[in-house]
């Protein structure tokens, strides 16, 4: 299965990017072949709806799981439609998060923040 992770730089040893939609790159890692590819996130510079476009990019990579520290509601809607499961990453490196995912140690990400134009805008 392919998994994707937002990345600040093109290195498996770097930390997971704190943002999903605005991450400069995504690592797409194949758990079977152990190949990894860095995909540029062309949505990052958009004025709005970056999460939606980023989720579209991920879905088009044929990914089965997205590992990310956070995710907006709109992007989560795209992932749900694309049958992509979301897992919450920790403070460790991309490589370590992938290892944790393979061992089944990453929890599901189930709380989503409202989009920029969010329907569920509310207090923190």
């Amino acid at each position: 299965m392919k998994v994707a992770i937002p990345a600040d730089s093109k290195s498996m040893d770097s930390k997971v990017c704190a943002s999903f939609g605005r991450a400069p790159y995504f690592v797409v890692y194949d758990t079977e072949t152990k190949d990894s590819v860095f995909v540029e996130n062309t949505a990052a510079s958009g004025t709005g709806g970056a999460g939606i476009r980023a989720a579209q990019i991920i879905a088009d990579q044929g990914v089965g799981a997205m590992l990310t520290p956070r995710c907006g509601q709109n992007a989560a809607d795209v992932f749900r439609s694309a049958d992509i499961k979301l897992y919450r990453t920790n403070d460790h490196s991309i490589k370590e998060n992938i290892e944790a995912f393979v061992k089944g140690e990453l929890p599901l990400l189930e709380d989503f923040h409202a989009g920029f134009h969010g329907r569920n805008r509310g207090g923190l």
Binding site: G48, G49, A50, I52, R53, Q56, A59, D77, S81, G115
Partner: peptide
């Protein structure tokens, strides 16, 4: 339509178009 939308209000996954009204 997905390519055209500058606001990213549309996505196409699993043979289905998703429209984000509030975007």
């Amino acid at each position: 339509c997905v390519r055209f939308c500058n606001y990213n209000a549309l996505a196409y996954v699993n043979q289905k178009l998703i429209i984000f009204d509030d975007v």
